[in-house]
Amino acid sequence: MKVILAQPRGFCAGVVRAVDTVEQALEQFGAPVYVRHEIVHNQHVVEDLRAKGARFVEDLNEVPANAVTIFSAHGVGKEVENNAHQRGLKVLDATCPLVTKVHNQGRQYAARGYQVILIGEPDHPEVIGTLGQIPSPVVVVQTEAQVATLEFSQDTPLAYITQTTLSVDDTHAVVDALKRRYPQIIGPDTRDICYAVQNRQTAVRELSQCVDVVLVIGSPQSANSVTLRDIAAETGIPSYLIADGSAVHSEWLNDQSTIGITAGASTPEAMVSDVLNALSRIAPLQIENLPGREEHVHFRLPDGLITRQ
């Protein structure tokens, strides 16, 4: 079987920063350290950190007083931040800087008197955290159909912001629908969607043009991984979202197949190797890398950590 690997794929700079934050906190402060919500949406990453001494909680009330506490890459609302401060927790904020940028945009629009519309998935942790960062009511829309149900008058000052991990095409469509209905609306360019998400979406589109099957390695809880699978499926070829090599089904493939592989932004490269090992047990592999954009983004670790030299 021929295997073509997408470029780029896997970990983005925000995920690297978040995972490094937990690992260096364990090294600096010792176990346990407490992480509010899964640090990123990948069970292999979470289990690896749990084995090293991280404790994952959904509520700060589960964290002992004065304990080292890490906020996940998805971000949290002001109420969570204030609760941590009141309880005297030592907080390391691993919120992705690109998510923080969205928080800042939303607060700035609200401070200028705009009604803010957030394009995103209502139950996603990033959206919940963003809602909690903006000190005024925010309306969440996910689809063009939902835009059609908005009841703002034409003279309402409106501004939109977006979840960072959405499909660029879908977000474009919602923004266009908002602009058609409310020509006065303002907001950031859709290029403000996470650079890593955009790069991986571009790569999977290119990958889908030259393979028979696409395997997207990632968690079903990972919005960007699900989007990669959806984009590949839209091209009309079989596309599967799998967590690791154990999820590969031989009936998806044959020894003449050309298989495309990519990975979500929270998927470690070890899981790509695991899938390749699983495929090699079905048939000998010929592996190629699809040329693509190289990423050189690096984010500084949160305040409170002594960085390695």
Rank of each mutant, 00 (worst) to 15 (best):
M1F: 02
F11H: 12
V15P: 08
V15W: 12
R17D: 02
T21P: 05
V22H: 01
E23S: 13
L26T: 15
L26V: 12
Q28S: 03
H37K: 07
H37M: 01
V40N: 04
H41N: 07
N42W: 03
N42I: 07
N42M: 11
H44R: 12
V45P: 01
V45D: 01
A54Y: 03
R55C: 08
R55S: 07
F56R: 06
E58R: 14
V63K: 04
A67F: 05
S72P: 00
S72A: 10
G77E: 04
G77N: 09
G77H: 05
E81T: 06
A84D: 07
L92Q: 06
L92I: 05
T95D: 10
T100A: 11
N104K: 15
G106C: 08
R107Y: 11
R107A: 13
A111E: 12
I117Y: 00
I119H: 11
G120Y: 07
E121C: 08
P122V: 09
V127H: 04
G132H: 04
G132L: 03
I134H: 10
I134L: 10
S136P: 03
Q142Y: 04
Q146F: 11
V147L: 00
A148Q: 14
T149K: 15
E151C: 10
F152A: 00
S153K: 15
Q154V: 06
Q154H: 11
P157F: 06
A159M: 08
I161C: 06
T164N: 06
T164K: 03
D170F: 02
T171P: 08
V174Y: 00
A177P: 01
Q184L: 11
Q184D: 09
G187H: 13
G187L: 08
D189E: 12
R191H: 13
Y195I: 05
Q201R: 05
A203Y: 12
C210T: 09
V211F: 11
D212K: 02
V213F: 13
V213P: 14
V216I: 10
P220M: 04
A223C: 11
N224F: 08
V226Y: 01
V226S: 11
T227C: 04
L228E: 06
L228A: 01
T235H: 08
G236D: 05
G236L: 02
I237S: 01
Y240N: 08
L241W: 09
D244L: 05
S246T: 15
A247K: 06
V248E: 05
S250G: 15
W252Y: 13
L253I: 12
N254A: 04
T258V: 14
T258G: 07
S266L: 14
S266G: 09
E269P: 00
A270S: 15
M271S: 06
D274T: 01
V275P: 10
A278V: 05
L279H: 02
I282D: 09
N289S: 15
H298N: 07
R300A: 15
P302C: 04
P302M: 07
R308L: 14
